[in-house]
């Protein structure tokens, strides 16, 4: 536990002592903010149009749902931004240690692989959580202007967080495979995109195969979260996916010593 905390704090501080944390968080907030602005103004326009139409035709004003029309697409967009931002957070975790030689310190200290993997994973997950919490400000603004549903937002954020853990665990894994950060980041993005798009192929495959492929799709599991549906199946899927990435990282570090690192 002490070792885990030591590694976690070191990684966390290193994010903030370099520009990485500020740049990644800042740009994530900026891009999410732009989409937030577009989606919300679009929603407001539609409300006004619906209002005018209703007056014109002397009908009841329809009750448009901000959760469905603005927040849900925003959550979907953010899940995509995270796909491109998180590999940039995780790429250095092991690749940089290999490049600078500090891996020799880590692997000759009385620290287990599990401790160092979990420490690094938690630091990246913490940074991601902070990013998400900051976008929570956007949501808070909506409560001043309308009546969004809290439950759906919270479920959506839970989904975003769990999905991000999948990205982070595989980002960590690809970082153990190389000493080149760019390669680590690009492989992570490519790998996740495959598991992202696998759901689209499922429409073309036979129903049985399609269903299986669909279940492997990262984004298909996210849809329920964005809708506000809390389903343990999806949580279990994301957590197992995350565990898989961490497990592969362990295997990769352990086996590297036989190959000669």
């Amino acid at each position: 536990m002490k070792n885990y905390l030591a590694i976690l704090t070191r990684e966390w501080k290193s994010y903030f002592s370099s520009p990485i944390a500020y740049v990644v968080m800042g740009l994530f907030l900026l891009i999410s903010g732009i989409f937030y602005y577009l989606l919300v103004t679009n929603f407001v326009q539609m409300c006004m149009q619906a209002d005018m139409q209703a007056r014109y035709y002397r009908m009841a004003v329809p009750n448009l749902n901000i959760n469905m029309m603005a927040i849900r697409p925003l959550l979907h967009n953010m899940s995509l931004f995270a796909l491109f931002f998180l590999p940039l957070v995780t790429m250095r975790l092991f690749a940089d240690e290999k490049k600078s030689g500090t891996i020799e310190l880590l692997l000759t200290s009385p620290v287990t692989h599990t401790q160092s993997i979990l420490g690094k994973f938690s630091a990246a997950a913490g940074l991601y959580l902070l990013m998400l919490l900051l976008t929570g400000l956007y949501m808070a603004v909506l409560f001043f202007l309308g009546k969004p549903e809290v439950g759906q937002i919270l479920t959506g954020y839970l989904g975003l967080f769990l999905l991000g853990l999948c990205y982070i665990s595989f980002g960590l894994f690809f970082s153990t495979l190389t000493d080149n950060q760019i390669i680590a980041a690009v492989s992570t993005i490519a790998f996740i995109l495959v598991f992202w798009a696998i759901g689209w192929i499922s429409g073309m495959a036979s129903p049985a195969v399609g269903k299986i492929l669909g279940n492997f799709s990262l984004i298909e599991h996210f849809d329920d979260f964005a809708k506000g549906v809390f389903d343990t199946r999806h949580i279990v899927f994301y957590l197992s996916f995350t565990f898989m990435g961490l497990f592969l990282s362990y295997i990769s570090i352990e086996s590297a010593k036989w190959r000669g690192r």
Partner: peptide, 21 residues
């Protein structure tokens, strides 16, 4: 090659090493 975290301060670095050791 000394295994140094370039972006850390000497004191913080030694503190980290002392902790994991």
């Amino acid at each position: 090659n000394p295994p140094l975290y370039a972006e850390m301060r000497v004191l913080d670095y030694l503190d980290f090493v002392a902790r994991i050791k």
